[in-house]
């Protein structure tokens, strides 16, 4: 019993010391408004990234709020302003309706950073926006494919849900090649992100006996579906094999397929914006100017693309999504 009380007392002391340390004003108060992690693997990684970077060890006192609804996000942002945060970080559910909240924040002297998604408003209202360029992602992948210097490109292109941001970005660059005639479209079909549907599409090409040597699937799941069809048909795939397999999203399991040489390429729309924002905040705290913004006050995230011949275990641990 005495031991227990002793332990509790020690704990309490440690806690008070920790709190005193923060009361010194060292910690930067940050409010993060984001979409819920259940939205997608991308969002899950994005949420974890912000939790890891804006941690107590890094000198932050961060509050997090998640909602997929714009009005809930707006009231959460107002709450953060009332609580007197130093910085407000927002990934908005919708692009409109934020003007008054951002003005309130400005009047309260709160620095606002946007990440992942833009908001339609006066760029004066925020410090900077860290966003992805979806088209860039497709271009990175297609440029990688061109670097492979194949004799001919016969491509099976499996698309995501038509009209989604990711689909448009990942399709655009490849469509340009089809039009220029540098690559041949064997088939271009949407599987609406459905893995099993992707398998059926590839099966139908195999059954038609038309030759192909590249599979360009717009996410990892559909690439896996395509590979299942190849496996059943006895067609080899991967590094130095008959068919080149390309996927997107960089799930950990997909990167492991790359490491094993079963796939060739995996592209990523980077969910990791926290460190960039943290660096900018540190600059502002030190009284410096933020550099490297374009005229929209944006910083475009660097999109990663992994080649099966170069990927390492470290890459999987650092950049892989999920488990």
């Amino acid at each position: 019993m005495k031991k227990l009380i002793g332990l509790l007392l020690t704990l309490a002391m440690v806690m008070t010391m920790a709190m005193v340390a923060f009361a010194d004003g060292e910690a930067i108060k940050v409010g993060v408004v984001n979409n819920p992690p259940s939205e997608s693997g991308y969002r899950e990684a994005n949420v974890n990234d912000f939790i890891n970077v804006f941690s107590e060890e890094n000198g932050y006192d961060a509050g997090f709020y998640y909602s997929i609804k714009n009005d809930e996000q707006l009231s959460a942002a107002r709450q953060f302003i009332t609580d007197g945060v130093d910085y407000l970080l927002i990934s908005a559910a919708e692009t409109t309706g934020w003007d008054s909240v951002l003005k309130d924040a400005q009047e309260a002297g709160i620095g606002v950073f946007l990440f992942d998604r833009m908001i339609e408003c006066d760029p004066e209202l925020f410090e900077a926006a860290v966003v992805s360029d979806m088209a860039m992602e497709g271009e990175t992948a297609v440029n990688w494919l061109l670097d492979q210097k194949l004799d001919e490109y016969n491509i099976i292109h499996i698309q995501g849900a038509m009209g989604s941001d990711a689909q448009l970005g990942r399709t655009g660059a490849l469509d340009a090649q089809f039009e220029a005639g540098t690559m041949k479209k064997v088939v271009q079909q949407t599987a609406t992100w459905d893995e099993a549907e992707a398998k059926k599409i590839v099966e139908s090409v195999i059954n038609s006996k038309e030759p192909f040597n590249v599979i360009y699937a717009e996410n990892d799941g559909m690439a896996k579906g395509a590979v299942a069809a190849l496996d059943e048909a006895g067609i080899t795939h991967g590094v130095d094999k008959d068919v080149i397999v390309m996927g997107f999203d960089c799930n950990k399991w997909a990167l492991r397929e790359l490491l094993a040489g079963n796939w060739n390429y995996d592209g990523q729309c980077s969910p990791f914006q926290a460190q960039v924002i943290s660096d900018m905040i540190q600059k502002l705290e030190a009284g410096e100017e933020i550099e490297g913004l374009n005229d929209m006050k944006q910083i475009i995230s660097v999109e990663k693309g992994f080649d099966a011949r170069e990927i390492t275990e470290d890459d999987i641990a650092t950049y892989g999504l999920g488990e």
Binding site: S40, T192, W193, D194, A196, G221
Partner: peptide
């Protein structure tokens, strides 16, 4: 079992 994975959003959508 077809693909040894589950995607809750798209399975049998």
């Amino acid at each position: 079992s077809r693909l040894s994975l589950i995607n809750h959003e798209t399975i049998l959508i």
